[in-house]
Amino acid sequence: MTASMAIVRPLAARAGALLLTLWLVSALVFLAGQVLPGDVGRVMLGPFADAQAVAELNRKLGTDQPILQQYWHWFSRAIAGDFGDSLSMRAPVAPFVLSSIKNSAALAGIVLLFLVPIGIGAGVVAGLRSGSLADRLIVLTGVSLSIVPDFVSGLLLLMVFGLWLAWFPISGAAPDGAGFWTSSYHLILPALPLVLNLIGYVARMTRAGVIEARGADYTRTAILKGLSPSQVLFKHVLRNALVPTVAVIATQSGFLLGGLVVIEALFGIQGLGNLVLSAAKARDFPMLEAGVLVMAAIFVSTAAIGDLLQALLDPRQRRRNAP
């Protein structure tokens, strides 16, 4: 009973905090939308439309109401899953958002496919030989790659592998009706800059975990009781180092979302980042609000899942959270 309470109580608190955060985000985005210059009807109809038509449209859209009323109107429907109609597409927002989530998820999947094994591998090598030349190189390269803007590395990769060597297609969007492999193949080049950008972070986290596990008492015990080096490595060091590392990576994987904005614009992928960027530029407020909320929801829930994973895998932390 106490054991289950120890898990349920922080979980409920976490879920509550999560919903509160999302509600605050929705209010923030709504306020940002209100600062947009010019009224919505004017933006939609253009500068030459007559004033009466603009007023009529504003009345129809509800954009002539006071701000709190507008927010309540939007909020009460959003709760029920209705995010309204896009101003620029003149169609419900939901299908656009759903298909963009699918495209972004495919890209994120390819990124993780490369990022996790390479990053963890490099981190393990660096952690096992901390202080060596290999370690310094891995850490320095990782940090350096993480600060090169992804549109710069994306363009350079596009030039080398897309245009000169022509190994990969330069568009991230596969032709209609393409199969799973063709679509994935189109996403490799867009995924690479994000992989490069985040690899240093993953490697640094893994490295810290490995160094900690190497210095731990259980590792010394394992060595002293005469286990072979490979047994010590696989059964004690890596097993203890990697589990929390993976959880930490999960906690931080929301960082991927920021990279999507630029990369999707660069490679012409109709994903969440592109949706938010073009909605913002077109002042398409319902679309923007829905896209940003989905991003925030993904961001906070990956962090929560990562924390939960960490708590489940590490009994010490579970006890610490208990009242």
Partner: peptide, 24 residues
């Protein structure tokens, strides 16, 4: 701390994009 969390639950570039589009 709760308010900071809300602001930071948006990817940096999204937050900045929204604000810059709004104020030019």
């Amino acid at each position: 701390a709760r308010l900071l969390d809300a602001v930071m639950s948006l990817p940096f570039i999204v937050l900045v994009t929204m604000a810059l589009v709004a104020i030019g």
